[in-house]
């Protein structure tokens, strides 16, 4: 197992009262999995991934990455920083350099890569995020539009080529074309072996690319299974203020075989209507 959470608990001090953010979370995540994480606002999903990234310290319990307890006094966190990339919820706030190039290259500054290798990585990351490298490299990242900033910030994380990629609501604010291109890129990274954990409210996007869904509700793990399994609990999810994908919802209403992706749903619908027409 690449990531293991054991009896993980987190408490915050909120206006003098202790409040449980996460309670007794046990999770095992294998190398190369693509996991979607869902939950209503304030359920603790961001805290969960921040614990995995070593950005928060648990109140009790353990986070093991490749078998090592990352909160142990003897653990060297630079190892974790080298293998884990984290795209924050508003990644555009991470931008600070004078040019897009310098911003994306920042994470590679202290790596042992040559100048040429750095440039190749920056170019690749920016092109992967849908930019024309030559046109964008000298722009000020702060002069870009909201969605463009977000894509530059994500490129900065991708340039470091992390083994584990954690993304907190990365596709909100991207236009449909940028969103589709980004999901394709995530699928490509996944096919190349990257472990991906993505928080999203977008059930259609999760159905499209994740293989496993973890649903957090009220600080506890509520559901954990394949996308098909989790979306078959439409009523349970609705009580947690969550939606299933368009395909899942419609296939139920039309009494079609359960499908979670748009493509599979349209196939099933064609078969049904085409059959009826004949």
């Amino acid at each position: 197992m690449q990531i293991q959470l054991k009896q993980l608990c987190l408490q915050y001090d909120c206006e003098g009262r202790k409040s449980d953010v996460l309670q007794d979370i046990d999770l095992q995540i294998g190398r190369g999995e693509f996991i979607g994480i869902m939950g209503r606002t304030g359920c603790g999903k961001t805290s969960l991934v921040q614990l995995m990234a070593g950005l928060l310290t648990p109140t009790s319990g353990q986070v093991l990455i490749d078998g090592e307890d990352i909160n142990s006094r003897h653990y060297d966190k630079t190892i974790l920083r080298g293998k884990l990339g984290y795209v924050f919820q508003y990644p555009e706030y991470q931008l600070f350099e004078t040019t897009v190039y310098r911003d994306v290259a920042f994470a590679l500054k202290y790596s042992k890569l040559s100048k040429k290798e750095v440039e190749a990585r920056v170019r690749q990351a920016l092109e992967d995020m849908g930019f024309d490298f030559a046109a964008i490299r000298e722009e000020s990242p702060l002069a870009l539009s909201g969605g463009e900033k977000r894509r530059v910030a994500i490129a900065g994380v991708l340039a470091a080529q992390p083994e584990i990629l954690i993304l907190d609501e990365p596709i909100a604010g991207l236009d449909p074309q940028a969103r589709d291109a980004f999901l394709k890129l995530l699928k490509k990274l996944h096919a190349q072996g990257t472990t991906i954990l993505m928080i999203s409210h977008n059930a259609d996007a999760l159905a499209d690319c994740a293989h496993r869904l973890i649903v957090i509700n009220d600080g506890k793990k509520a559901l954990d299974g394949t996308v098909e399994e989790v979306f078959s609990h439409e009523e349970v999810l609705s009580q947690m203020h969550l939606d299933v994908s368009f395909a899942s919802r419609m296939s139920k209403k039309l009494a079609l075989p359960h499908s979670v992706t748009y493509e599979a749903f349209v196939q099933n619908l064609k078969a049904k209507l085409g059959g009826d027409a004949q």
Binding site: G39, R40, T41, Q89, G146, E169, A172, G173, H201, A203, H241, L242, D243
Partner: peptide
């Protein structure tokens, strides 16, 4: 201006 982008389905 994209006031619902970051909200869960119910809040949206």
């Amino acid at each position: 201006d994209e006031a619902t982008a970051m909200l869960d389905p119910m809040c949206r």
